[in-house]
Write a protein that binds this DNA or RNA. Structure first.
Length: 1073
RNA sequence: GCCGAAGUGGCGGAACUGGCAGACGCGUAGCUCUCAAAAAGCUAUGGACCUUGCGUCCAUGUGGGUUCGACUCCCACCUUCGGCACCA
């Protein structure tokens, strides 16, 4: 028996029984605020069969979670996928017991894109894992007073439970945690491969040292004092952000530098390729810029200045401004400069003592003091004071032949360039300040360009003028034969001259330094190296072994000057051996007192069982390296591992994996018990067997070829330099080592099926990267100290994950972030409830022509605007299946908008478009319903006239909404389909159950998505005076004729002849008088 | 200091390649339903003005400019947020 169930707004609900028999008042629900779904259920034709009618995320979300996991809905066929799409989101690092909404925001944004791609027919691989090793997690453990190994189990289950609840389409079988030895075994393996090829080396370097905590700090643990200061005092008279003092994140003590032996990765061998690669990839522009800056390529000239320190000795300097060479009036050496020792040797008496004192003092000084911020002469012009000491030696300016004094000055950094600077006080701010202090000559050699007298339009800022330095390019003066050239020409000419005369070489300098890999901490992957003292004495190392001699030599590009002068890092390989690969993993021992030792040595050194080992070469007593590797190494290759984490082949009689077990027990609250997730059994055991690939690699070549490079990588902009740069570096290393099978020759990958051919080529791991914005809370960045960290759990509890997801995406443009507010999320919940009601009412009924609808009297015009008049839409019989052209247009327009917006990660406007469309659908559903007065002023709603929502519209609506609200749309979809999605029957082409989430994304017809009629703007002299509705595509002449008749337009034109008429097709006409 | 992004109602934010500023949502006000409240719905909502209209004027950080027309492009400045920084 056909029923018409019709929802009007909110709880004002009417059920019509379409059959004329039994048409009694019983079947009408009186319009009442006391809407009780239970009371209505008996009258609801679908209610009994399919459960409760109102939207209850607390029930449907756990239900679908379970179904999706059982059905492996989000598990692509990793080995045979024909149309792979690798949708990657940066995995989280646990630094709290759970994730906050800011993290959730990022994951949801990535998931929506993945779901969209899946519906577009791609087999989407969306893996998840935990970056659980490292400083953040260790600090969290220190803070809560638990051992990181124990704590990691808790955070793991908590985070996985959250990530499950949020409704993302993760391929859970591929999850990985960096602190599980099955993973870090390979992290160690990677270290060894780099060592064997000379890309990992040991050298002395400066590290951050906190004298209060007595520990070495990683760079990330060192923060600017200004950050700490904000909390101390709100008085912001200290407005100069330049007064940067670096302090310990935890105790606020100023950090010092200490020299310690460290392990390095020779990333500087790859500077050129890292820079060039940026050209090809589709990344957020700001991330590319950040990487370029970090690489910091600068081209210049390496110059030799003759010096009288010793006979025939020279001082090398690097400059990007050879055009200022004639203005050199002094030479400044860093206190650590190798020649300083000779200067000391040759100096005498008091001067010698003074130099010695200066050098030792400045080397010992903490960074900030060395940078030396002085009190301002006036409040605004604070400046850095330069200190230095004059020596008795001189250099000769190679072009002027003048002798200039050599200074030792600590504003010169040993870590950049050659550790020596040619002083050009007239054209360098620092040199100027130094020269002024030590009464050094200032010789101007560059003048601002432009005709004399036509100034001020020179490019100097007021500040520069007041400091009497001109640092921009200009025209040369006082420069001999080069006078009159502009700076660009002079740079070239003087460089050529220097090269020709033999005192200069063109050089490229980089900002990028080698990557310090070692950390003197506990919670990380032990560096798999062994040191043997007797081998060291014998001058032996792995490089003297037979194995080493067989090692293929890598074509290593030479970057001798790559920002890393050898003088600062003397490599010391002697005595070092990698742990034999059969000995991997080097398990991280459980050390009770894992706190940083304060001696600059990792806590691992306190475990003799760990340290003591036999030398793999000579067999004598040796010791293990006790440093652990930087977390960035763990995360630099995880995306390569994901696809190759194997699937369990069968799920029977195995133990449930530890971590899955935990997350399930956590999620038991949400009505999913572990017995209900057979698919998760055995995950860990299988992972353990994982990739004993025929060849000893952390990944399967064929799988890797199929899935990589990553198609879409989404993550925070804060990782846009280090993490992504390191990943790119390692990728290139693996590529060079021959660990991939990508090949231009064999793009179709006969061995492993279709390899993807990314536009960016094979040498980049992430074809596309987009940085998401920052979600703030109540107008401020979420931080524990501000106490405005928002957790997702209460919101999921209250409104469901769908509401939270959709709301988060509605907060603002995904790339820009947004502001999370409580009141906003309620609005989104309202919206989803409206959709629910609309679909529940409109959906099932549309297959039945509403026989009674036409029998109602024609309506009076309703007070609400009615966009589509029923009378214009053909006969009643056509209503159920046919859609009016206006409605069709709106649908296609919405599909177009939503499709384009999701593609471009503009989720906020996609949601807005859906909302708009839902609004019009609702109005149509209401039609000209009106309230009819009955006795005693009681009112009853009777539906008089309306246009039904077609099945196609309902389908489309659900499909468009599916990426945002996956649970709700799945539930409604299954109800509409009248079958359980999980039914064995319903499998789609890819063999997945016919869930809404692998139903094809709706298509739009570009013609239909444009309306036939458009509103054209009528302007007179550029001001809007009228609007007119015309046919799309109307021509200028016709428009003009129409427009001149308009009343308001006439008022302004008033018969005058237009000077000019501007016509923009389908947009506006502008009459200029 | 350098690099990057941004500045729009009471609030979050829309606005394509220069073409209707304020979509969508929140909030607020009035109304409907109710004994009442909640929920839900309807209407209005940048400011000013009057002659209340298919009305006019002013409005997108500030000041200029280009243009028939500027949130959008150009110049200068102010502010905020990210990143880098004695990088020679």
């Amino acid at each position: 028996m056909p029923y018409l169930a019709k929802i009007v707004h909110g709880s004002q609900l009417i059920v019509h029984r379409l059959s004329m028999q039994n048409h009694s008042s019983k079947n009408k629900i009186r319009l009442s605020d006391n809407f009780d779904p239970k009371a209505i259920e008996s009258k609801w034709p679908f209610g009994k069969a399919q459960g409760k009618q109102d939207y209850d995320p607390g029930v449907i979300e756990p239900k679908w979670q379970k179904v999706w996991e059982e059905e492996r809905l989000y598990q692509p066929d990793i080995k045979r996928s024909k149309n792979p799409f690798y949708n990657l989101m940066m995995f989280p690092y646990p630094s709290a017991l759970g994730l906050h909404v800011g993290n959730i925001y990022a994951f949801v944004g990535s998931d929506i894109h993945g779901r969209f791609k899946r519906m577009q027919g791609f087999e989407v691989f969306e893996p998840i894992g935990l970056d659980g090793f490292g400083i953040h997690s260790e600090n969290f453990a220190l803070k809560v007073g638990e051992h990181p190994m124990d704590l990691s189990k808790k955070t793991e289950s908590a985070i996985y439970a959250q990530l499950r609840a949020i409704g993302n389409g993760f391929a859970w079988f591929h999850k990985l945690e960096t602190y599980i030895s099955d993973y870090y075994k390979w992290t160690q393996w990677i270290f060894i491969q780099l060592f064997k090829r000379g890309l990992a080396y040991r050298a002395e370097a400066d590290v951050n040292w906190c004298p209060s905590c007595k520990t070495v700090l990683a760079d990330e643990q060192v923060v600017r004092k200004s950050e700490a200061r904000n909390q101390i005092s709100e008085k912001s008279e200290i407005r100069n952000p330049k007064s940067e003092i670096w302090v310990c994140e935890r105790c606020g003590t100023e950090v010092q530098k200490r020299k310690l032996e460290q392990w390095f990765f020779k990333i500087t061998n790859y500077t050129d390729r890292l820079l060039l690669g940026l050209e090809k990839i589709d990344w957020s522009e700001k991330v590319k810029v950040a990487q370029r800056n970090w690489l910091g390529k600068s081209e210049g000239l390496l110059l030799k200045f003759e010096s009288d320190i010793e006979s025939y000795s020279q001082v090398e300097v690097f400059t990007t401004r050879p055009d200022t060479l004639f203005g050199v009036t002094f030479m400044a050496l860093a206190p650590e400069h190798p020649q300083v020792i000779k200067i000391l040797d040759k100096s005498k008496g008091l001067l010698r003592l003074q130099i010695q004192k200066y050098v030792t003092d400045s080397i010992r000084k903490p960074e900030s003091e060395r940078i030396g911020l002085a009190e301002a002469e006036n409040q605004k012009a604070r400046e850095v004071v330069k200190t230095g000491i004059k020596t008795s030696f001189h250099c000769t300016n190679p072009v002027t032949g003048k002798r200039v004094p050599i200074f030792i000055a600590d504003y010169v950094l040993m870590s950049y360039g050659t550790g020596a600077v040619m002083g050009v006080p007239a054209h360098d701010q620092r040199d100027y300040l130094f020269a002024r202090k030590y009464q050094i000559d200032i010789v101007e050699v560059v003048k601002p360009a432009g005709p004399v007298g036509s100034f001020p339009p020179d490019t100097r800022t007021a500040h520069q003028i007041s400091q009497q330095t001109f640092t921009d390019y200009g025209v040369l003066v006082n420069s001999g034969e080069f006078n009159g050239l502009n700076s660009q020409e002079a740079i070239k000419a003087i460089s050529d001259f220097a090269v020709k005369k033999g005192f200069g070489v063109k050089k490229v300098m980089w900002h990028l330094r080698d990557w310090i890999i070692s950390r003197q901490r506990y919670w990380g992957a032990p560096i798999p190296m062994i040191f043997c003292q007797s081998c060291e004495k014998a001058g032996k190392s792995w490089f003297t072994t037979v194995e080493a001699k067989k090692q293929k030599k890598l074509p290593i590009s030479s970057h001798e000057m790559a920002g890393w002068p050898a003088s600062n890092t003397s490599r010391s390989d002697a005595g070092w051996y990698p742990v034999p690969e059969s000995g991997l993993p080097v398990e991280l021992p459980y050390i009770k007192n894992f706190k940083p030792t304060g001696t600059g040595v990792s806590p691992l050194a306190t475990d003799p069982n760990f340290v003591k080992v036999k030398c793999p070469d000579c067999g004598s007593e040796a010791r293990r390296e006790t440093d652990v590797s930087d977390t960035f190494l763990d995360s630099a290759w995880y995306f390569l591992r994901y696809p190759s984490v194997s699937l369990p082949e069968n799920s029977a009689n195995q133990q449930v994996s530890r971590s899955v077990n935990q997350s399930i027990s956590k999620s038991a609250d949400r009505k999913v018990s572990k017995s209900e997730i057979p698919a998760y059994r055995n995950a860990e055991k299988q992972i353990h067997r994982h990739s004993e690939f025929s060849e000893n690699l952390p990944w399967d070549r064929q799988i890797t070829k199929r899935w990589l490079p990553v198609d879409m990588y989404i993550g925070g902009a804060e990782h846009s330099v280090l993490h992504i740069l390191y990943s790119r570096f390692l990728w290139k290393v693996f590529y060079d080592f021959g660990y991939f099978d990508f090949s231009a020759k064999n793009p179709n990958g006969q061995l492993g099926g279709p390899a993807k051919m990314p536009a960016s080529g094979w040498e980049e791991p992430f074809s596309k990267f987009r940085a998401h914005g920052l979600l703030i809370s109540e107008g401020a960045k979420m931080s524990k100290s501000k106490g405005n960290v928002v957790l997702p759990d209460p919101y999921i509890e209250k409104f469901g994950a769908d509401t939270l997801r959709t709301y988060l995406m509605f907060c603002g443009r995904f790339s820009e972030g947004g502001d999370f507010r409580d009141t906003g999320i309620e609005g989104m919940h309202r919206f989803l409830k409206r959709v629910w009601r609309l679909v529940m009412s409109a959906g099932p009924v549309t297959t039945f022509p509403p026989a009674s609808a036409q029998s109602s009297q024609p309506s009076k015009p309703s007070q609400s605007s009615e966009p589509f008049d029923l009378r214009a839409v053909g006969g009643p019989s056509s209503r159920a299946t046919r859609i009016s052209s206006g409605a069709l247009h709106l649908m296609h327009k919405t599909i177009k908008k939503v499709s384009e917006d999701i593609e471009n990660l503009r989720y906020n406007t996609a949601i807005a478009a859906i909302m708009e469309w839902v609004g019009t659908l609702e109005k149509r559903a209401v039609g000209s319903s009106e309230l009819i007065d009955q006795r005693q002023g009681r009112k009853e709603l009777r539906t008089m006239n309306y246009e039904l929502i077609t099945q196609e519209e309902v389908r489309t609506l659900l499909l468009l909404l599916a990426p945002f609200a996956p649970y709700m749309t799945e539930e409604l979809w299954s109800r509409l389909a009248g079958n359980q999605v999980t039914g064995a029957s319903g499998k789609n082409k890819s063999g997945k159950p016919s869930s809404i989430h692998n139903t094809p994304w709706p298509k739009y017809d570009p013609k239909v998505s444009e309306s036939e009629k458009i509103e054209l703007v009528v302007q007179v002299n550029g001001k809007v005076r009228d609007r007119i509705i015309v046919d799309r595509g109307i021509e200028k002449e016709d428009t003009q004729r129409l427009v001149l008749d308009l009343k308001n337009t006439q008022k302004y034109v008033s018969g005058k002849k237009p000077k000019k008429v501007i016509f923009v097709k389908d947009r506006l006409i502008n009459i200029v008088i």
